[in-house]
């Protein structure tokens, strides 16, 4: 550090000390939550690889090579090739994008829709019955069946897959938000806010929503994990993403006929899918512990 004038020199030690204290606290916090850190590292790794797919992919993920069908892993094809001779490494890298986009979008959409409907059910007496009966109806249908049915009536595309996976997830969030809202509306600070003349939308935004962020974030991560699995499953069943979008589910579906001769065609997409879902679940679990209001005081 170069000293330019006396004034900053006296301020600098205090700043570095504060910085040191803060980073020490951060290190301590990180050591306390190993699953969160592990999950986050894994997730960042997968996300980084998918984002970098255009640069690290060795081949065009759709390029056919009839001469190198079902080739085992080698220097030219680190993960081998599939039944059409497509390079699996490149496909797996590109395939992560589909999973991550689906996971993230579904989590955001399902949570937002769930929050809106759940708050309506929890705070507007007249909406409660209608919303909750609708949600009960949705919950009565198995998620996968509902998603398949929705896919069956629409044309396969990224958007329709996302919608088809989001719809069955919404009732979960609605129930969570409604139950949280019912307990929060009885909180005295909500009553106090009303006694101060606060309008309902402001109460919801300022006093109710911030107090349900933690369970919502945790729920959203689990929805993201479920969404990725469901996307893979739909693609595996052939009612998911269109073939021109590489997806781990499609790859596993393509490879399953050749498991006996080319195990790698299923192994690598499967490994990546498992690792991604695991990482998201770890993050969710870790967040639940880390954001627990009883433990987060020193945050």
């Amino acid at each position: 550090m170069t000293m330019t004038s006396p004034a900053p020199a006296s301020a600098a030690p205090a700043a570095t000390e504060r910085h040191a204290r803060r980073s020490a606290r951060r290190r301590r916090w990180m050591r306390k939550h190993p699953p969160l850190i592990l999950g986050a590292v894994l997730l960042v790794l997968v996300a980084g690889l998918s984002l970098a797919a255009p640069w690290i992919a060795t081949h065009d993920p759709q390029a056919l090579d009839p001469l190198a069908r079902l080739a085992p892993p080698s220097a030219a094809h680190p993960f081998g090739t599939d039944a059409l001779g497509r390079d699996l490494f490149s496909r797996v890298m590109w395939g992560g994008r589909a999973s991550l986009v689906v996971g993230l979008t579904v989590a955001v959409l399902a949570t937002s829709a769930g929050v809106l409907l759940g708050l309506a059910a929890g705070f507007v007496r007249r909406a409660d019955g209608l919303v909750m009966r609708l949600m009960d109806g949705l919950m009565a249908i198995p998620d996968i069946l509902l998603a398949i049915a929705l896919m069956a009536v629409t044309r396969a595309s990224l958007t329709t897959v996302i919608v088809a996976i989001t719809v069955p997830q919404v009732p979960r969030v609605v129930r969570l938000v409604r139950s949280l809202a019912l307990s929060l509306r009885e909180q005295q600070y909500v009553e106090a806010a009303r006694a101060l003349g606060t309008r309902l939308p402001v109460i919801l935004w300022r006093h109710v929503l911030p107090n349900m962020v933690t369970p919502l974030v945790v729920q959203a991560t689990f929805i993201a994990a479920t969404a990725m699995l469901t996307e893979a499953l739909l693609s595996f069943l052939g009612v998911g993403l269109p073939p021109q979008i590489p997806s781990w589910g499609t790859m596993m579906a393509d490879g399953r006929n050749f498991v006996a001769v080319a195990f790698h065609a299923v192994l690598f997409p499967g490994l990546f899918l498992a690792a991604t879902v695991l990482s998201v679940n770890l993050v969710g679990d870790g967040l639940r512990d880390a954001l627990d209001p009883r433990l987060s005081r020193q945050l």
């Binding site: 009553e191 101060l196 006093h207 911030p210 107090n211």
Partner: peptide, 20 residues
């Protein structure tokens, strides 16, 4: 409410929003 008539409650522990 709050402007010309205000109210204070019994439980100071729960009358304030914990996240603000």
């Amino acid at each position: 409410r709050g402007n010309r008539i205000s109210m204070i409650f019994q439980e100071p522990m729960t009358s304030l929003n914990p996240v603000l």
